[in-house]
């Protein structure tokens, strides 16, 4: 039985037994190579679920839809490794109760998908530990290194050119499962820290704020990259910050639902190399 069939059957079982009230998965997209989120509420709809290499989106962001989990009922969800990590972060930031989430995990390879053993976020420690050890994707790493090797002026020019394209549509924010604030800082106009118009200064401000707010939290699902209509390589910024956090604090985000928020927590024996 293919994993798609397997998970369709599992979703049907979960729904008909009443264990979950909803399954969030992937449905057919506008073209055969695209998939879009699908909310399935009854067993007879589960045949609409798809699971293949085209299922790129990290669906965990839908879990924090206001009121969705308020009735304490469980929700089933299709999640890749990044999705599992982001559920862990959402749990550690008190946005959801991890035991309300029934995971149908999958690993996406170039042409196919395989099932991940387990249904609770706590069931994947070995997979997450392996991810932490894994080197980042080779293609991207080359670009990170190319930017690293630039002089500060070259780097500034590079990002200036990239950010100039930004139209402040905030698609990167909307797609990101970590951007769950009820009011984003950019929507606060008393005071207006981030300029709303899409000129260079405001664009820099927004993208820097975004980078800092995702430091130690981003799971590199690539949602922002895919969502950006003007193709700014947003994931690179997050990758760079993730490298920094891993290097400085040995912190890999989303390892467990009890993981500490890296930039908010402190320990008495933290190195204080930044204090002069």
């Amino acid at each position: 039985m293919s994993i798609q069939e397997q998970y369709r059957k599992k979703a049907a079982e979960l729904l008909s037994s009443g264990e979950v009230k909803l399954v969030i998965g992937y449905g057919a997209g506008t073209t055969p190579d695209r998939r879009r989120p699908l909310f399935v509420r009854s067993a007879d709809e589960t045949s609409k679920l798809h699971l293949d290499a085209a299922c790129e989106a990290n669906l965990s962001g839908y879990l924090v839809t206001e009121g969705l989990l308020a009735d304490r009922k469980k929700v089933g969800i299709f999640l890749g490794p990044e999705g599992i990590r982001s559920v862990n972060i959402l749990a550690s930031e008190s946005q959801l109760d991890p035991d309300q989430i029934v995971i149908m995990g999958f690993n996406r390879e170039a042409e196919s998908v395989s099932a991940l053993e387990g249904s609770n976020v706590r069931d994947f420690p070995a997979m997450l530990a392996a991810l932490k050890e894994q080197a980042p994707g080779a293609g991207e790493q080359a670009l990170v290194e190319r930017i690293e090797n630039m002089t500060p002026e070259e780097r500034f020019t590079f990002w200036q050119a990239e950010f100039e394209k930004c139209i402040k549509c905030y698609a990167c924010r909307q797609v990101c499962p970590m951007c769950y604030c009820r009011r984003c800082i950019v929507d606060n106009n008393q005071p207006q820290w981030v300029q709303t118009s899409s000129h260079t200064l405001g664009n820099f401000e927004w993208n820097l704020v975004r980078a800092f707010h995702l430091s130690g939290r981003c799971v590199e699902c690539g949602g922002c990259d895919r969502a950006c209509p003007v193709n700014i390589p947003l994931r690179l910024i997050n990758r760079r910050m993730a490298m920094e956090v891993l290097d400085a604090y040995d912190h890999f985000s989303g390892m467990s639902p009890d993981q500490e928020t890296v930039l908010a927590s402190f320990k008495k024996d933290d190195p204080e190399t930044f204090i002069l």
Binding site: S94, Q95, Y180, C181, R182, R183, N188, E260, A264, F266
Partner: peptide, 13 residues
């Protein structure tokens, strides 16, 4: 309280 999303970063920090 209207805009607080209850992430408890402040609580930890």
């Amino acid at each position: 309280e209207a805009t607080c999303s209850g992430c408890w970063g402040c609580f930890v920090a």
